[in-house]
Each structure stands twice: as structure tokens, then as C-alpha cells.
């Protein structure tokens, strides 16, 4: 095996230990209000940032097609009972169509 490839694999594994494994193992006793914040507020904060990050990543690549398609997907997920697969098909088709036009 190539030495530099092994280093890349080791770096990614070390990063996983730092950002995924250690935070999951370390439990700190917290006061009630902070515990409530972690369980209720923090996940909402993460998902808001997550949605924006996904949209930003795609919009910076194809501004018009990705903006309209992502808005469509967000709207379908928030306002309708449309399922995951149908929304994924509609969103991807809209993106492809807008790119083609």
C-alpha cells in the first residue's frame, strides 16, 4: 500500500475520532435548562444550518437551477404530504430541466 494513501486514510480516521466518536462518548452532567437546550433547541439549530449548507453548496455551483429546485423541494417537504421518493424525483427533474433550458 502507498504510504501517502495510508496517511490520508489515517487522517480521515483521526478526524472521525475527533468529531464523531469522542463527542459521543464524553458525557458531561448538565443543569436542566442546558439539557433541554441540547435536546430541543440545538437539533433545530443544526437542521436550519444543515438545510442552508446543502442549498448553499448547490446554489454556488448552479445558481438559478439549484435555487429554484431547492425551493421547490423545501416547499414540497414543508407544505405537502409528498413523499421522499416523489419529491427527490421532482426536485432532480426540475434541476435537470432548468439546466437544460
Amino acid at each position: 500500500m502507498n504510504h501517502s494513501t495510508l496517511m490520508a486514510i489515517a487522517a480521515l480516521f483521526a478526524a472521525s475520532c475527533l468529531v464523531r466518536i469522542v463527542p459521543a462518548l464524553v458525557r458531561v452532567p448538565l443543569p436542566g435548562s442546558l439539557q433541554r437546550c441540547l435536546e430541543r433547541v440545538l437539533p433545530v439549530a443544526v437542521f436550519i444550518n444543515f438545510a442552508l449548507y446543502i442549498a448553499y453548496s448547490e446554489i454556488s455551483r448552479d445558481p438559478l437551477a439549484a435555487s429554484l429546485s431547492m425551493l421547490l423541494v423545501a416547499g414540497l417537504a414543508l407544505l405537502t404530504r409528498c413523499g421522499l421518493i416523489s419529491t427527490a424525483v421532482i426536485g432532480t427533474a426540475a434541476y435537470a430541466l432548468l439546466l437544460y433550458l
Partner: peptide, 23 residues
């Protein structure tokens, strides 16, 4: 070719569904 786009669409849908449920 943006092969990652369907995965982004799925992630956006799941994030919005999570937010809708929580809010």
C-alpha cells in the same frame, strides 16, 4: 455532471421534514 444532486435533494427533504416535525 453533478452526480451528487439527488443526494442533496434527499438531504434537503429530510432536513425540512425534521424541522417541520420539531417546529
Amino acid at each position: 455532471v453533478n452526480l451528487g444532486y439527488p443526494a442533496s435533494v434527499v438531504l434537503m427533504y429530510l432536513s425540512m421534514s425534521q424541522l417541520r416535525g420539531r417546529l
